[in-house]
Amino acid sequence: MKKAIGLILIFVFLAVVLLGGMAWAAKYRFTFISHAGEENPFWAAVYRGAQDAAKLLNVDFMFVRPKEEGDLPAQLSQFEAALAQKPDGIITTIPHPDMFDEVVKKAIDAGIPVICSNTDDPEGAKGNARLSYIGQDLVQAGYFLAKKVTEGLPAGEKYHFLISVGGPGLVWAEQRAKGITQYLDEMGYTYERLDTTMKMDVAQSRIQAYLQAHPETKGVIAVEYNHASAAKAAKNLGYKPGELLIGGFDLVPEVLAEIKSGYIKLTIDQQPYLQGFLPIVQLYLMREYGLSAWDVNTGNAVVDASNVDLVLELSQKRVR
């Protein structure tokens, strides 16, 4: 029995040490709930931004993510758990048109401000009670990307494109894909969507297989960061830099490296650091001075060979 009691004591001790050290007293407590899984490198910059803001303003900040990328039921129950904790403010992504309507309203009715970051309800403020949206206009960004990638192609010809969709069915991915296909349709180009997952190794092998089966493909447009995987696939298959038009979103280190190598034509940066930093600042100002929330378009910053070196430097600091 002694050993058994010892084991229990060890468990209690571990739990208290691990958890007790994490909570400290601060003026305000904010919680950030995201749909993105822990393996998603893009979110490191969001986290960094939020953490920097929290440190600057001396507020307690917690980041909650589901174990599996895009596990929305888990995100919803995490939201409810965070709500039960009665924080001073909640930041969330809204990756589904209806699922988060009720719970966001519940929070706001309870006097807890909710700010949306990164991914908004497709109907914007009409579709969800969140106070503001800090992120990219997703459809417009997809349209803009497709236009930029195909820029310079001789007119009148028909080309085929592969669209990499890492999160089929998720709002952020579908919205961008919508913008991309809108532009390709206007140009009369053909395209096919491929579920590439958010895991870079899986994405690479799937894109590589697709390119082998469809050698007529003129380019790969990704709604996420899988254009880095497309670049690696192109390299493996013996394409020369620039032969395949490759573009996508976000600035993970792999993407920057492939812009330098010339395989990626461009990437659209939505400046995730701001998506973490600004909501914390907004919530703080709302709590401290009763100011109201405001929308921010974190933008369509194009990164290509012309400015990649500057961005690389900032990327190492995890700011971009």
């Binding site: 571990l14 994490m22 993510r65 758990a81």
Partner: peptide
Amino acid sequence: DNGLIMARAPSYWFRVFIGIA
């Protein structure tokens, strides 16, 4: 799962705890 959020622990701890448990 829920308690770790209530205790304001980063979600990374969840797997560790389930493993230990």
